[in-house]
């Protein structure tokens, strides 16, 4: 009995140390952020390059859709988040960061690109992926606890149905007579889309190399360009075979959650816009 009692207590003691330490670490690791201090991470310069078909896109300029509409884009913004490098074996190495890409931003490069700096380990990869949208947890957290690029002043927050607009595409059809405005603001968790770039099909492995840059963060190493082709956004409407925004049609708009069919279509089209240009 004595030994049993002592053993039991000893077990309790050991258990509580283990359990206690586990709690200590699991509950508090967020505070220490070892990723930031790791010396082995390289800067990856990701450039989002806006296009309309083969032409570089500029807000305010006229472009012709495949349906024959002349349109002008006035706003083109989206969240990119949950970046990851896809390893050769198909596993993923997560990269920190959430970006509000804004092609109306004054910070665009001289070529009109929106540039994002990510941190990742050097190596050969199959490619890169990210989501268009805001991760579930951050999408529903109390907005007053969040800061840029999220938060109440991001211009992307819907307070009456807490969550973020994942992308905004605004503009007008300018072909005939009075211009007709369109305004697509789309969000909600089920419309978060994963974009996979570079060769991720079959067994074909692209030489996607993140190289050591000896501490340089200049724009000569590890520069990768993603084409964002807004002409694809207008190719497929809710009705099969019908494009978004045809001539003379009433103004189309989505608001975060609806109308459902149109919002679903805009999200599907948006995911078609991305392609890999490479280095």
């Amino acid at each position: 009995m004595i030994y049993l009692g002592r053993n039991l207590l000893y077990t309790l003691f050991t258990l509580s140390i283990t359990f206690g330490s586990a709690l200590f670490f699991s509950g508090c690791t967020e505070e220490t952020n070892p990723v930031e201090t790791s010396p082995d991470l390289q800067t990856i310069h990701l450039r989002f390059a806006p296009y309309f078909g083969t032409e570089p896109l500029q807000l305010g300029e006229k472009y012709l859709t495949t349906a024959g509409d002349t349109i002008v884009l006035t706003t083109a913004m989206f969240y990119a988040s949950e970046y990851a490098l896809v390893n050769v074996d198909g596993s993923e190495s997560t990269l920190e960061g959430i970006t509000l890409v804004d092609f109306g931003d004054s910070q665009l490069s001289s070529e009109g690109y929106f540039e994002v700096d990510l941190k990742g380990e050097e190596g050969t990869y199959r490619g890169l992926k990210f989501n268009v949208g805001v991760p579930f947890d951050q999408n529903h957290r109390d907005v007053s606890t969040q800061s840029e690029p999220l938060g109440p002043n991001s211009g992307m927050y819907w307070s009456w149905n807490p969550g973020y607009i994942f992308f905004k595409v605004e503009g007008r059809v300018d072909s005939i007579g009075t211009p007709v405005n369109f305004l697509y603001h789309t969000g909600e968790d089920n419309r978060r889309k994963t974009i996979r770039l570079a060769s991720l099909n079959g067994n074909d492995i692209t030489e996607f190399v993140v190289e050591a840059s000896d501490g340089h963060t200049d724009h000569e190493h590890n520069v990768f360009t993603v084409k964002v082709d807004y002409s694809k956004f207008f190719e497929q409407g809710v009705e099969i075979g019908q494009p978004m925004q045809v001539k003379m049609k009433v103004a189309e708009r989505t608001n975060h959650v609806g109308p459902k069919d149109l919002a679903d279509r805009t999200a599907a089209n948006f995911a078609e816009m991305f392609s890999w240009v490479g280095e």
Partner: peptide
């Protein structure tokens, strides 16, 4: 022993 473990917890 028990006290110590409780403190750690």
């Amino acid at each position: 022993a028990l006290s110590l473990s409780l403190i750690i917890l």
